[in-house]
Amino acid sequence: METLRKFERVCEIVDQNGRNEARLIPILQAIQVEYRYLPEEILTFVATSLGISPARVFGVATFYSLFTLKPKGKHVIRICNGTACHVKQSMDLYDIICTRLNLVAGQDTDPDMLFTVETVNCLGACGLAPAMVINEEVYGQLTPERALALIDDIIRKETGNEPDHYGA
């Protein structure tokens, strides 16, 4: 019934936005909140209900970096790569976290769909660089140790295992 409930919510979202094609971005944002990504068939449905071509919806959905067409992991980790964070070696954090989660280059989500690791341009928390967001929570003035500790906590909670074996 979960899929059904979600779909009803999509119908609701489209209606609330007056089936207005100008509201495409808010509609996609709301749908992504519901599904945590934008499923293809739902985008086709959105195109149908707004009377626009699916290619256009796809074009918009792929243009903006906050939209994703692939399901994301349960925990989304976003490492800030704004100037201030970059200066404070935030990309090292990124590498360290990817290594911990056994993510190889080009891969942003682990096979168990527990984690998605990505970068973000600037969180506006520059005074506290380097910063990262885990799910909706922002963490600042990170060191590699603190960042790993945060990740390890989640791994322990999710798997009940020690983090060093994650993904191995």
Binding site: E40, L43, T44, A47, I52, S53, P54, A55, R56, V57, F58, G59, T62, F63, S65, L69
Partner: peptide
């Protein structure tokens, strides 16, 4: 008709049918 449109962004931009 709109069978093809731009997708993705920057250097990854392509003209493609939906999805």
């Amino acid at each position: 008709v709109g069978a093809i449109d731009f997708a993705y962004r920057g250097m990854h931009t392509v003209v493609t049918p939906s999805f």
